[in-house]
Design a protein around this nucleic acid. Structure first.
Lengths: 388, 388
DNA sequence: CGTAATAATTTCCTTCGTCAAGTATTGATT
DNA sequence: AATCAATACTTGACGAAGGAAATTATTACG
């Protein structure tokens, strides 16, 4: 059972929030190093940490062996008590709900999914209730220590109010998802755009940790981009941000559904890859898996499709790097399941177009298990606990 | 004579900084409305404002007439005392120094310029000393109330240290400009990248006031972009940010010096416009002014050059809008002296490529007197006084 | 003139974080 | 072993910042 204040937020001082966030994201840290890092006195850290330890959110680790030449009392690092609380995250797509339970360290403890036959709001909420029940009342026994649920939805989402203004795949308009989901599940709900959720997760718990700015590029049927600048997620004033799918990279390229030609998405999106692979092979029933298999087996024409796609992605990434100058960039997404076919070409495209020192921006290119989308949603709910 | 603490920064509390910034940027405001706007108690505003009034930075305006039906004590709005302090700003280009004196409201009070024959650091500093002397010891008598100098330089500048890492036109490498300029002028110096300085000025004193995020696109020999996101300027981790000049908008377009084809800059930069106008007219000695005159007179081939350029700019702007979603966008720069020839086409290009609701982003398109660059530099030095 | 309404100020109080002093724990030196 | 220097952490007094609520100021309206 959890015992803190009613709404559940850790009602702490700014210093306590900073301390908890730092320990959460940057692993075990001694009080003194926290003080240095956060620009606080060590006394302030001691005071801020005490209630967090008492509430069981932080624990003191055994002293580590000394480093450096001098003597001195060894530090007793503060670490997150991972099992103190669990968080549910659910990614809602047009045909499936994917859910996970994570602990305070954002490690996935359980996962489940449910197919959706009807993307209507009511049907989705019913399924959501079942999914959350499955996750929390199953073997792990997570229910008693779980209070929060994060939902990730593609489209225009207002995180502050939990309103889904518009979600294209679900065809939802102005759905007050936070309230609805809270009714169904009894949990405190956070709703966030899927790409932003994933970006947040990566910023707090992944490769974006410590970066003042970074970008997450997702490759799938669409090409998206989440941005963190000056330590904060970029939201876009008109509900639009991170749209890199329709940057033009090849005016002679294929037509895009947006009306233009040679958009990144029209070359490198999963459907575009499949279409081009079918053309190249002459087999109209070719699947993505087939295309990957053929390319890996050395089919040059299909290899060229991936090469061209990778390069288009790289050019899009370069545009991001040139414009906002992130400290690092992560490229991920279902479309990168075949990342071995893409990687080199992404780098080629990036290096071709990146301006000046922007080429030095580290690129991480790796596939993304679909479950990570749900983890992103759950990570947002951790964030809402810590920094509401 | 100015009398505050040694270094000159207004050493205030966070609340005082917020109050002063709000009055500075959002015009006269009563204490109560400031309190509401800033989320403070009115008592806090009273306390924060008092020393600022005593120091002469703020003044209390006469009560304005009541609004609304009810009665009540009229508000006495706080306004900036524009003449309390003056600021010098200098834009350093490869062949000229442009300087201005502005008051606390960022209104230009004096301006001057000096040609540069030698872009070497020492020569520039000597000229800078003369320019500042001309500005401060001239008719306005600004010297006694001037302590700060802002410098705007193109290229990679570290504002925090005042180091010019690299400036392409000046061919400067790692010049500790802040220290050097402080020696020469005896003023407290701030150094900033020119586009960022202009963006900052627009954010605090221009059309960007009140916007949580906005973008300033400069059109000149290059195409640049300054960004404010979540209320803060975007700096770029590797010294690169706002580079939109090399987004590809037409793969069949002219070659660009960057090695690619059809970059915005290769189509719409001033040199590109001139080159294309020469081609279109067959006159190899055509100047920019000639091209503008011919286009305005109805020359269709040259008009098409501007049309194409404007559209390219619009496409680049759309990329910015899609990626960061600014609340508004200002398009400006010397290249827009002929903005009547560009404007419609910029909007066309923007609307063609802007994604979803991003088309609703308000675009301001207007020319930019060159002196504004210097004003931007001076505005940064105001900012360094208020929020160091 | 009172009275309601709004603005600004004052007083008192809480809270947060710093400072400086003290405690704890280690390795090195005698 | 005893001491010392170095580092980590804790404690308690203090100060500064901002809030709450009462007080004063100034208006419009009856």
């Amino acid at each position: 059972m959890l015992t803190e204040s009613g709404t559940g937020a850790l009602t702490e001082t700014p210093a306590a929030t900073a301390v908890f966030t730092a320990v959460l994201t940057e692993g075990p840290l001694s009080r003194v190093s926290l003080a240095r890092r956060l620009g606080l006195s060590s006394a302030a850290v001691t005071k801020a940490a005490r209630p967090l330890i008492e509430m069981g959110y932080l624990q003191e680790l055994a002293a580590t062996e000394r480093t450096g030449p001098g003597a001195g009392r060894p530090a007793s690092p503060l670490a997150v008590q991972a099992d103190r609380e669990y968080f549910v995250g659910v990614k809602i797509t047009g045909d499936e709900l994917i859910g996970v339970v994570i602990d305070l360290c954002a490690d996935v403890r359980a996962s489940a999914h449910r197919p959706l036959t009807d993307p209507g709001v009511d049907a989705v909420l019913t399924e959501l209730g079942h999914l959350v029940g499955d996750l929390l009342d199953g073997p792990g026994g997570y229910r008693p220590r779980t209070r929060r649920l994060g939902l990730a939805v593609s489209g225009d989402v207002d995180r502050a109010t939990g309103l889904v203004r518009y979600s294209p795949f679900l065809q939802w308009h102005n759905v007050p998802l936070r309230e609805r989901a809270a009714e169904v599940t009894g949990l405190t709900v956070t709703v966030e755009n899927d790409v932003k959720a994933l970006t947040t997760a990566e910023h707090w718990f992944g490769e974006g940790v410590g970066a003042e700015s970074f970008a997450l590029v997702t490759v799938g049927s669409g090409i998206g981009c989440g941005l963190v600048v000056n330590g904060r997620i970029v939201s876009g004033s008109h509900g639009v941000a991170g749209e890199i799918g329709h940057i033009g990279v090849d005016a002679t390229g294929p037509e895009c559904h947006c009306g233009s030609r040679g958009c990144v998405e029209a070359i490198a999106g999963t459907p575009a890859i499949v279409r081009q692979a079918r053309q190249a092979s002459g087999r109209s029933d070719l699947t993505m898996d087939d295309a990957v298999a053929l390319a890996r087996a050395g089919d040059e024409r299909i290899g060229a499709v991936f090469a061209r796609g990778g390069e288009a992605i790289g050019l899009g990434i370069a545009a991001v790097a040139n414009l906002v100058g992130p400290a690092r960039i992560v490229v991920s997404g279902e479309g990168l399941a075949a990342y071995d076919l893409f990687e080199r070409h992404i780098r080629t495209g990036f290096e071709r177009q990146a301006f000046g020192a922007a080429v030095e921006c580290p690129l991480s290119i790796r596939p993304l298990p679909f479950e990570q989308w749900a983890r992103g949603a759950a990570a947002v709910s951790i964030q809402s606990l810590v920094a509401p």
